[in-house]
């Protein structure tokens, strides 16, 4: 059964078994995104519960314009980025907030990042700023469009393109730094 079918059955019957079905499909993915961004198991557990509460409360508002997974991930990224800004008091969550934005950047080919060995990629993702991590995950892990990402981060599409470019550059330079040989 597709997600959309499960949602429409849930909205018709209000049977919790349909919501449980959605929970079992997405809780692992939501948790793994939370742990990537928040870096804390207990926090990620709590965040996953909060995110599913939001999904539960807003499920009737899901219009079906985008895929359900995209909607779920949007809520997840929004929650985590908001949490980092609010609770961790990190205002500089993108590398462009920290580094010199005037500096011209070389283009990084997608395959240069996509083909990094998994354990190394994990390490690279751990050292780059959380905002850069989030845009790379949205683009390469969740296949979100520039428009979707711009809606999540409430920025223009051109700003998002620039953020992705900087995030790719940051990831590549971090990789080079971590694995000099």
């Amino acid at each position: 059964m597709s997600d959309e079918e499960v949602i429409s059955l849930y909205l018709k019957t209000r049977s919790s078994s349909y919501f449980t079905m959605l929970y079992s499909r997405y809780s692992g993915k939501v948790y793994s995104k939370c742990i990537s961004l928040l870096k804390d198991e207990q926090l990620s557990d709590d965040a996953t519960q909060d995110i599913f509460l939001k999904i539960y409360l807003n499920l009737a508002k899901f219009s079906g314009k985008s895929k359900f997974s995209t909607w779920v991930y949007s809520i997840t990224y929004n929650y985590c980025i908001d949490y980092i800004r609010r609770k961790k008091k990190e205002r500089n969550i993108f590398s462009e907030d920290i580094e010199n934005v005037g500096e011209p950047l070389e283009d990084v080919e997608d395959h240069e990042l996509l083909e990094i060995e998994v354990s190394r990629l994990k390490r690279v993702m751990n050292v780059i700023p959380p905002g850069d991590r989030a845009v790379l995950l949205m683009k390469y892990q969740d296949d979100m469009s520039i428009r979707d990402i711009s809606e999540v981060l409430e920025k223009s599409e051109s700003a998002i393109k620039m953020k992705i470019k900087r995030a790719k550059h940051k990831a590549k330079s971090s990789y080079k730094e971590l694995y000099k040989d």
Binding site: G28, K29, Y31, S32, K33, I35, S36, E41, D110, H111, L113, L114, E115, I116, E117, V118, L121, K122, M125, L136, L137, Y140, Q141
Partner: peptide, 24 residues
């Protein structure tokens, strides 16, 4: 980006999901 190329971001997600499941 060619969708046919290897995408280790997806594998990263699968690994993390498995790890969290194992932990639980």
């Amino acid at each position: 980006m060619s969708r046919d190329t290897r995408n280790n971001f997806k594998r990263l997600s699968d690994d993390e999901e498995l790890e969290s499941r194992d932990d639980k």
